[in-house]
Design a protein around this nucleic acid. Structure first.
Length: 280
DNA sequence: GGGCATGTTAGCAC
DNA sequence: TGTGCTAACATGCC
């Protein structure tokens, strides 16, 4: 499920500990890793992945777009920094848990930590991926700027270079990284722009409203600990504040008109036909 | 049992 | 080159 706010919530929990009392990952030593579903190890080979990560210490936990970045350091070895990258894709979850609780039915990788703890990657749909690389750019280098770390000028310049419809553009991680289907719909509604409006059709004012709207919905999402989706991603409550996503047929909170649902580039898309007219 | 789902990517057509 | 369509990945929920 995770888009930028959900991934940021996971990163924060791994850095500082989770609201449910789970301890932080930061500062812990990784003793070994159990790879229960090898296909989720994108690189290197599962065997090399396990060998290289054993004995490292977690030095940092960050995020770029929808990727989690875990900075690792080997205590008795000068061979340089190592980064663990994790993409949760549709159904991945990453939690520090007691070892006895680590091996759930959908656990795909379990890192054994010090102090009787484990880092569990649970992923029902098996779309998630992990990488162990020397330089994070090997994985995230092709992405655009992080959606919360881009200036208005840079956003405008990148948008001016594109011609297509706004909805698929916002979902294009090479344009900006971190926005997914939900927050794209939310941002377009807040900016009062139709999902099928083209980048080339926007006025200066439109572009700045869109920039601010993206920031606002992402920051609102983070403040709410992300959005929860039934069985997939628990914890957050931004879903209670959705303006349009999943509200087809319900009243627009701004004007009262019924929210519409259409499909744009195969993705379910929600908008208010009155607040977000295609023309103008 | 059919339809749906938050994410990404490869291959293809224009 | 940019854009966007389809299928694929694999599973679970309603």
């Amino acid at each position: 499920m995770p888009e930028l706010p959900e991934v940021e919530t996971v990163a924060r929990a791994l850095r500082e500990g989770a609201p449910n009392g789970a301890p932080p990952l930061l500062g812990r030593t990784i003793q070994s890793v159990k790879v229960l579903w090898p296909r989720e190890v994108a690189s290197p080979s599962p065997r090399a992945f396990a060998r290289r990560i054993a004995g490292t210490c977690v030095q940092s936990v960050g995020r770029y777009g929808k990727y989690l970045l875990v900075g690792l350091h080997r205590l008795c070895d000068e061979s340089g920094a190592l980064s663990l990258l994790v993409h949760l894709k549709m159904s991945g979850r990453l939690d520090v848990v007691p070892r006895a609780e680590a091996f759930t039915p959908h656990a795909r990788l379990v890192w054994l930590l010090d102090d009787g703890l484990a880092l569990r990657f649970d992923d029902a749909r098996k779309f998630g991926r992990v990488w162990l690389v020397g330089d994070p750019a090997q994985v995230v280098g092709k992405l655009g700027p992080d959606a919360l770390n881009i200036t208005p000028d840079e956003f405008a310049a990148r948008l001016r270079a594109r011609r297509g419809a706004l909805k698929p553009l916002l979902l294009d991680q090479a344009f900006i990284a971190g926005v997914g289907n939900i927050y794209a719909d939310e941002a377009l509604h807040l900016a009062r722009l139709h999902p099928r409006r083209t980048a080339a059709s926007l006025s200066e004012d439109d572009v700045m409203r869109l920039y601010e709207a993206i920031r606002q919905v992402l920051l609102e999402g983070i403040a709410a600990n992300g959005a929860s989706f039934d069985w997939v991603y628990p914890g957050g409550n931004f879903q209670e504040n959705f303006r349009v996503y999943g509200r087809a047929g319900q009243h627009c909170l701004a004007c009262g008109a019924p929210i519409a649902r259409i499909v744009v580039t195969q993705r379910s898309t929600h908008f208010c036909p009155v607040c977000q007219p295609l023309a103008g």
